[in-house]
Design a protein around this nucleic acid. Sequence first.
RNA 1: GGAAGAAUGGCAGAGUGGUUGAAUGCACCGGUCUUGAAAACCGGCGUACCUGAGAGGGUAUCUGGGGUUCGAAUCCCUAUUCUUCCGCCA
Length: 426
Amino acid sequence: MLEISTIRFEKERVLEGLNKRFLPEAQIGLIETILLLDDERKKSQTEGDIVLSEINKLSKEIGDLFKSGKQSKANELKDQVAVLKDKSKILEENNKRIQQELGDLIIQLPNVPHVSVPVGKHAEDNEVYKEWSGDLDILPSDALPHWEIAEKYGVFSLTDGVKLTGAGFPVFKGKGARLQRALISYFLDEASKAGYTEIVPPLVVNHDSARATGQLPDKEAQMYYIERDDLYLIPTAEVPITNLYRDMIVSAEELPIKLTGYTPCFRREAGSYGADVKGLNRVHQFDKIEIVQIQHPDKSYDSLMEMLNHVSHLLDSLGLPYRILRLCGGDMGFASALTYDFEVYSMAQKRWLEVSSVSNFETFQSNRMMLRYKDTNGKNKLAHTLNGSALALARIVAAILENFQTKDGVIVPEVLRKYTGFDIIN
RNA sequence: GGAAGAAUGGCAGAGUGGUUGAAUGCACCGGUCUUGAAAACCGGCGUACCUGAGAGGGUAUCUGGGGUUCGAAUCCCUAUUCUUCCGCCA
């Protein structure tokens, strides 16, 4: 959620930034409406406060009059208060209405893209921030896509998942299951080494949590919802982990706060069909290790680079070819100010698969969740929040299976072997 | 799932209708003392919004929502959460 003060005092920057997202005219128009409504809100509050102040003053007088036995004078004042109360009620309702309206409008505005965000409408407009320099075509022409390798070696089964649950819920088996666990352990260990504190959060969250990180209301259809208990299955660990700091005021010295966690992620992916969803390319449940930072506004972009380097290091160590994209305004998430996507090249499919998305949300999330830090003057200011996947497992597994396949089996990356206990899947 | 009790400032904990934004202690910040620190003493110390150039002033806030009353932390209703007991249970 954008801050009204930002809209008011940095209107040019806001408009310029939002233009990069190619929003419909009506949405841009919200800016003016919000400012006018905010003026109205201020005026309305002042009016209401004055009346309340009078009521408070009179009530005290009435108390004093009763004590000194001046009943009739007191009753006179009571009548006055009654009139003021009617007035106050109307003003209060008006005030509430305005605030509600203001809230409804402001929540419709996405975050203002950072200056470095490229202008563009679609994924094709994303900027390649870092290209892969090596050879991407090193597999023989009879190389198998990962779902065929999985079948050959019993790594995972989608048909078993269909029996248990439905399409898009893979069942990992044997060495495949072990590979999952190895990746989770490896990624968590690397995050710990980088100074992130490990968290094991709940996998279901309440409405407040889903709203604070921006899943609600804009991505409601993406989440599984448990109606009986009014809870949502998490689409990413970002939700519970970031929300640990909802409604918190931390001291500036505590920053940055660096957290990591492994969780399964649940996504409905409504409306996705076709070749895109084959094998592990797009599933409803996948494992992911998330890294989260809560940082001082002056340093959040340094943190973003640090996170970028962390993810790069993971992919380098696995030996997977990847590229980094800087998302254009139109392709960027609602809450983000700047997002870098990591894509791994899956050599048999000959396509890039997104395996990580690293974003700085600036104050967009912290404003929704009232996450603040106390600066050196003792003032409470909104902190910046960032997060990134480090990494999303399912597609990493797909890339490992395809890229490292040989006639004899799939070679396990060196760094994983102490976790898997084997060096080939066959 | 059933029954009873509870929810007060960063923490602990007073306070059952009238200068209560809220005693007291701890923590924290500033000062005195001290070579320095501790102790002691003095002072300060929640949050949000409105208003004001500023000093300041106003409003709200004692879990959330609603009500009674001239006036509510205090009374009533309701939701939520927690605790204890019972039931169930990995």
